[in-house]
Simulated scan of single mutants.
Amino acid sequence: MKQTSLNIIAIGIFVLTMSALLGPIFNVSPLIPAIATFSVLVLATIDTLGWQGQGGMIIVDLVEGTSSERRDRIICHEAGHFLVAYLLEIPVSGYALSAWEAFRQGQSAQGGVRFDDQKLAAQLQKGIISDQLVDRYCTVWMAGIAAEDLVYGNAEGGAEDRAKITAILTQLKRPGESKLKQSWASLQARSLLENHQSAYKALVEAMTERASVSDCYQAIHQHLSVHQN
């Protein structure tokens, strides 16, 4: 069961317990909190089984997304993925900065940068994948963590990015390399971001305005050209 749905269930149980304790004091019928809690549990179950936890993710995202610092961190993180993908010539097909945005775009309710990874999938299907391609994708996946660490001095997100590296190395029967590859890729991503800070800042501004992928590409290209000149 998704962690978000588990959190909703835990909240429901907590509310029911507190209502049982405080209900008599405030003269509240025990049926009201019981019905409300039961409804929450039913919805959480439907969400988990039918929507794969997407509803819970949207609710949690909407609540947590009210923090401007959190929104800034998300943009910082995703811009790291986007820029490094551009620099390593991995096409970006789209992005969403919240679960709700992703849902509205017809994607699974999880924000993030989406890549055109057909080449990776094709090589994995054949069972033959170049180390160079693995390194490029690992660097892109770790770029969000590297961007957060570069801007804030620490990273709050990135667990799923690390999991992707573990998953692909496990599929390649090299699970023991996961932590070393994460560290290496993080350093590579950080170096790219440090060497292209003007392009990164321009991309952050563009993504804050929800610019299209092509406009984001243009913002990066303009600042890379200035840097090269």
Rank of each mutant, 00 (worst) to 15 (best):
E64N: 09
P30D: 03
V92K: 02
Q228R: 12
Q197S: 12
E194H: 00
L41W: 10
Q54K: 09
S225I: 08
A219K: 10
Q197P: 08
G65I: 06
I168G: 08
A34K: 03
R210D: 14
P175L: 05
G94N: 14
I165A: 12
R210T: 13
S130F: 10
H221V: 03
V213Y: 08
A143R: 04
T139E: 01
H221Y: 03
A219L: 08
L22N: 01
E64C: 05
I32D: 09
N27Y: 13
E89R: 07
S68R: 03
M142I: 11
G23W: 03
S29A: 05
F38M: 11
Q222K: 13
D131P: 07
E194S: 00
Y217M: 06
D215W: 07
A99C: 06
I220W: 06
G55K: 01
A85W: 14
Q171L: 10
M1E: 08
G144V: 07
R114D: 05
V226C: 02
K2W: 04
A147P: 13
A146E: 10
H221S: 11
A202G: 06
L43I: 06
Y95E: 06
L120M: 15
E156S: 11
A121L: 13
L83G: 10
A163R: 09
A85F: 11
M142K: 12
Q105R: 14
S5E: 15
T45N: 08
A202W: 06
L172F: 11
Q107Y: 15
L97G: 01
V151H: 08
D131G: 08
L172W: 08
K2S: 11
T139W: 04
R136C: 11
E209V: 03
H196E: 14
R162M: 09
A36V: 12
S19A: 15
G23Y: 00
N27S: 12
Q54T: 07
R70V: 09
L22T: 10
G23F: 01
V204C: 14
E69P: 00
A121R: 13
L124K: 06
D135R: 07
D61T: 07
I145L: 04
S67P: 00
V15E: 09
D117S: 15
G176W: 01
A20F: 09
N7E: 03
F103W: 12
A109W: 09
F38W: 12
V134P: 02
